[in-house]
Write a protein that binds this DNA or RNA. Structure first.
Lengths: 342, 342
DNA sequence: GATTTAATTTGACGCGGGTAAAGTTTTATA
DNA sequence: TATAAAACTTTACCCGCGTCAAATTAAATC
């Protein structure tokens, strides 16, 4: 009875419906008459036929694929946001494909290249940032409807969804200043991510507005191993004993995780209690920031809002045919999380 | 001059080579005469034509796709191993597709389902473990050449590559016992991953062999938020003050990260110095274990060996037509990393 | 029950490239 | 230089499905 169905024509015979109608059904089950639909679904139950996606995508102008590209998947921030995004794409009937550039420009270009080959309906792209080949990104975005997130690159992509870096720094600096000494700012000298520069600039401008003396400490190190960089840089700083203030605001949580490890090793007591030597705060709301020692006071990304809005924007972009009247930018403010480190 | 090339026939004309030869070239550039090859590559340089992957895959019995499935991508262990695997697949000319089950059975089934639809040459699967639907996995593996890694499920997949849990526990217990008191063993009562059970059993058997009294402490909590579980469980344990030994071996690093945070909060000094209250060691070699406070002594997976061998096994499986004479199992021993926590 | 409207069927073509057969040219070997 | 082997060209058909036009049928409206 259950002879194997090899293609849509055979399935059409088996279900007693013509092939074009079957085709319509798979593109939109509600577009066929209820009686046909139930016949098809009855047949579907016995024969478990599914259209060949390669044949389908060859003939469709646009696939149901959505590309998701992040710069560094081993960073739990991206892993977390990708989780949200994937689930929302699936719910909307799309097939997400996930790619990580692993911090390498060549790989990012390769990914965009192979992404073009699968003709996705749209792409959610968190670019490498400073390391990105802007010409390559621009060329890609001309061909594929793309929404940028996390890292903004001016003029590239139809929209950008990210966090308002100013809000992060404003909240952390305000909190730290209100509850103690104003912070110095610890960052990588050559950050991979453009958000880092925005945060430093925000720090400088906010400190100026508050008529406070600002101190930016830029530590060496390149790449995406932020914890290690924060650790090494922290050890050096603490050995030199040249921290200008007793309060340190780290540019991001991963740097702070490394820095806290250095503090611990050097016997520096971190926290807001009176017997502590140093307060450390940071920014991102990294999934592990709860479990540092002490737990990390940080300004957190609104993961849910960002992923939700990024996906919604992409869907809207797809529905309007791949182009938006003008490039939309949406920034979400930080959510302050007060913990033990400051 | 640069009229757009729409398909292989047009490209054949443009390059002065017949279409079947072009087709051969793209399947294996070395299979065509050197003179033809250089003509094709010259044309390729001006016209940047690429075969339509949907048309290609429709007609090929087997694609060049490789599926990679992990249970929880937000766990840096998997993120890290995926990085290795992806790069090796790309180097070998395959197109890896990455999926995370996000800890959910339904999603794992969905992924295997859509994976079947893309007709991959092979799949590298790290199953959820206890949460997996074994019947679904078995059915999948009957259709797609699959190599399991990380979590073994007896009889499923053509091969398994993972770590030798016994070696992990043997090394940590040996080290801890040699340098101080024998450890108790801290684990989740309902671990998601079957490795956890193997580690507990190894602990019991090793302690018995050493004629030492064993103490297994099973803490409550389900799911994949191990740090939180370790943290909550740790707080409870330390409040009750009922630890049977001054040395704790955690089943895995993420649990240990949470436990260390609990120790810090409770003012327990962790480390191997004489003024410390507790020694804590663990297992996995988690990327962040270097940055805990104190840094975590742990038995590390041999990431490189595992990913290397998993990929090599899959390639071999693909070359031998999708079936192996018998199910191969390969386990790699741990590499002990001595740090400050024990 | 006649008419309009919507849905379906039939038949046919196209997408882009795999692949096989038969004949032709090139290269390698002796 | 003759001969065999390898690579190539031409021709043709195939894959599985989207999609269109024309004809047919069913449902909805009055």
């Amino acid at each position: 009875m259950h002879k194997k169905i090899r293609n849509m024509a055979e399935f059409a015979v088996a279900s007693g419906i013509s092939r074009p109608t079957i085709s319509k059904y798979f593109n939109d089950p509600s577009s066929v008459r209820a009686s046909s639909r139930s016949k098809i679904e009855a047949a579907l139950a016995c024969f478990d036929y599914r259209p060949n996606i390669y044949a389908v995508n060859q003939n469709r102008q646009m696939t149901k694929n959505i590309g998701i590209v992040v710069p560094y998947l081993a960073d739990p921030f991206f892993a977390e946001i990708v989780r949200f995004i994937e689930l929302r794409c699936i719910d909307a009937g799309f097939a997400p494909s996930l790619f990580s550039s692993h911090g390498e420009q060549a790989l990012e270009i390769d990914i965009l290249d192979s992404l073009r080959a699968i003709k996705p309906a749209g792409v959610l792209l968190a670019p490498l940032g400073r390391e990105s080949d802007k010409a390559a990104l621009e060329s890609f975005c001309r061909h594929v409807p793309t929404v940028l997130f996390d890292s903004n690159i001016e003029g590239i992509g139809e929209a950008f969804i990210g966090s308002d870096n100013y809000s992060f720094v404003a909240q952390t600096v305000e909190y730290l200043t209100r509850t103690g000494e104003a912070p110095c700012f610890l960052e990588m000298r050559h950050p991979a991510n453009p958000n880092a520069n925005k945060r430093r600039d925000a720090y400088l401008s906010i400190m100026a507005r508050l008529q406070l003396e600002s101190h930016v400490i830029s530590i060496e190190g390149r790449g995406w191993r932020f914890e290690e960089i924060g650790h090494q840089g922290g050890l050096k700083l603490l050995e030199q004993n040249t921290l200008p203030t007793n309060t340190v605001l780290c540019s991001n949580d991963r740097l702070a995780i490394g820095f806290l490890a250095a503090c611990y090793e050097k016997g520096i007591r971190v926290g807001r209690d009176s017997d502590c030597d140093l307060r450390v705060a940071s920014q991102d709301g990294h999934p592990f920031s709860r479990f540092t020692c002490p737990s990390l006071t940080t300004a957190a990304h609104d993961y849910t809002a960002i992923s939700e809005h990024a996906v919604a924007t992409l869907f809207q972009l797809i529905e309007s045919g791949g182009r938006l009247a003008q490039r939309a930018e949406k920034l979400f403010p930080a959510q302050m999380i007060m913990r033990e480190s400051a």
